[in-house]
């Protein structure tokens, strides 16, 4: 049972770490602010969830599990909000989203 939990948490942690790096690569490679926002939301959502769940499986006391859960909830609660407000004020400041050429012709 113990080994099972350990393996599960390792899988979670590794997957989370991989997703985090992917998000960061996206943050680096994507062409404009709005697309980078999508990449950042990868690191903010699933990567964070997986890492914290992996940590919860490793935690040694109930207290710590609850607190990690709180961290998870707060991140899940605030990160879409800050992403949205970033996008909104970027849009209002006149930053134009980068669109594919064919899209520009259609619209």
């Amino acid at each position: 049972m113990d080994i099972f939990l350990n393996v599960l948490s390792w899988i979670c942690l590794l997957a989370g770490g991989f997703l985090g790096i992917t998000g960061a690569v996206g943050l680096f490679r994507f062409p404009d602010f709005f697309t980078r926002l999508h990449a950042a939301s990868v690191t903010d959502t699933l990567s964070t969830f997986l890492i914290i769940i992996g940590l919860m499986l490793q935690a040694n006391s109930l207290m710590m599990i609850i607190k990690l859960l709180l961290v998870l909830l707060i991140i899940a609660y605030t990160s879409p909000t800050s992403a949205h407000s970033l996008a909104k004020s970027a849009l209002h400041s006149g930053l134009k989203p980068f669109l594919k050429d064919k899209e520009n012709q259609n619209s």
Binding site: F33, R36, D44, S79, S82, L86, A90
Partner: peptide, 11 residues
């Protein structure tokens, strides 16, 4: 842009 910076800081 500034927004990129804020986004990066958020990450």
């Amino acid at each position: 842009t500034l927004y990129d910076r804020i986004l990066a800081v958020n990450v």
